[in-house]
């Protein structure tokens, strides 16, 4: 029940790659761990790779939005990368547009986005 997803650190960026279908508690644990690690490692950015996820429901969607909001409060930026087309279509239909969340097509573009100045990355 207390599965935890590893959080990697590259310089001042935290990297999370979600590789399997998550239980709700694991999702909540990840949110908590990320908040702690942003402060503990003075991270400037967080990249969450969801390219392996076949579905994202409102629970995971909410976690992504919350992590983005928390990181903003802690002066870091979050980029969600690799969302699949079918997942994106479904999320929009579900009514979740993740307004405050930065996104990128893949890990490389996500990291590049974090390296650019804040003004253009928030687009």
């Amino acid at each position: 029940m207390s599965d935890r997803i590893p959080i990697l650190r590259i310089g001042d960026i935290l990297l999370v790659s979600v590789q399997f279908d998550l239980e709700d508690q694991t999702v909540l644990n990840l949110q908590e761990d990320l908040a702690e690690q942003i402060v503990a490692k003075s991270a400037q950015g967080v990249v969450i790779d969801i390219s392996a996820l076949e579905i994202v429901d409102s629970f995971v969607g909410r976690m992504l939005a919350t992590v983005a909001a928390i990181s903003r409060v802690l002066d870091a930026r979050t980029v969600v990368v690799g969302m699949r087309p079918a997942v994106a279509i479904t999320l929009v239909e579900l009514g979740l547009s993740l307004g405050g969340v930065s996104t990128a097509l893949d890990l490389e573009k996500g990291l590049a986005k974090l390296r650019r100045p804040a003004s253009s990355a928030s687009q």
Partner: peptide
């Protein structure tokens, strides 16, 4: 919806 979905994908 497509435009929003594209944004979600980056």
């Amino acid at each position: 919806k497509t435009i929003v979905a594209a944004r979600l994908m980056g």
